[in-house]
């Protein structure tokens, strides 16, 4: 996974450098440093250093074998967070938060349905009151407005 992540950084760095050389000028027409000067320098350094780090990682071999249990929990939390981002757009801030907390707590905090139900309602209400009423900051609106808030 470490090597895969470094390869992803290398791919991103290479694309960044390609755009810097292809689309951005090193100098302006008046001979001053242009918009490509900094990106080209940074891009080349990212590519070179990532290749170096990658060769180090390859030499060290596959030393990052983690147990599946660790990954299962973190991947689940990430997946639930991404689902929350999607439901946020559909149902709006309040309802999406209630749904997200209800599902996530049901998965992570098993065997405590009353505590989970209370938290799933109380936390969004407190956050709604804090953001929308006290701080006058907007909560995400939903495409489907089920609740009047």
């Amino acid at each position: 996974m470490r090597i895969a992540f470094l390869l992803a950084v290398l791919a991103g760095g290479t694309y960044y450098t390609y755009v810097a050389f292809a689309d951005l000028n090193f100098l302006t027409r008046t001979g001053r440093l242009g918009p490509g000067f900094f990106p080209r320098s940074i891009g080349v350094m990212i590519v070179l250093l990532t290749i170096w780090a990658l060769s180090d990682a390859l030499r060290q071999g596959r030393g990052d074998q983690a147990d599946a249990g660790r990954w299962r929990d973190v991947v689940m939390l990430m997946a639930l967070a991404v689902c929350y981002a999607v439901t946020l757009r559909v149902f709006g801030g309040f309802l999406a938060t209630v749904i997200y907390l209800a599902v996530t707590l049901a998965v992570l905090n098993r065997g405590r349905p009353v505590q989970n139900a209370l938290l799933s309602v109380i936390v969004p209400v407190v956050i709604y009151l804090l953001f929308d009423r006290v701080l006058n900051a907007s909560m995400p609106p939903g495409l489907v407005d089920i609740l009047p808030i």
Partner: peptide, 21 residues
């Protein structure tokens, strides 16, 4: 942490949205 975690996700999300909607 299993209770704190989801609440932190919510605060991060709604906090970020509130900056520029």
């Amino acid at each position: 942490y299993r209770i704190l975690g989801p609440i932190v996700v919510v605060i991060c999300t709604l906090g970020t949205f509130s900056v520029h909607a």
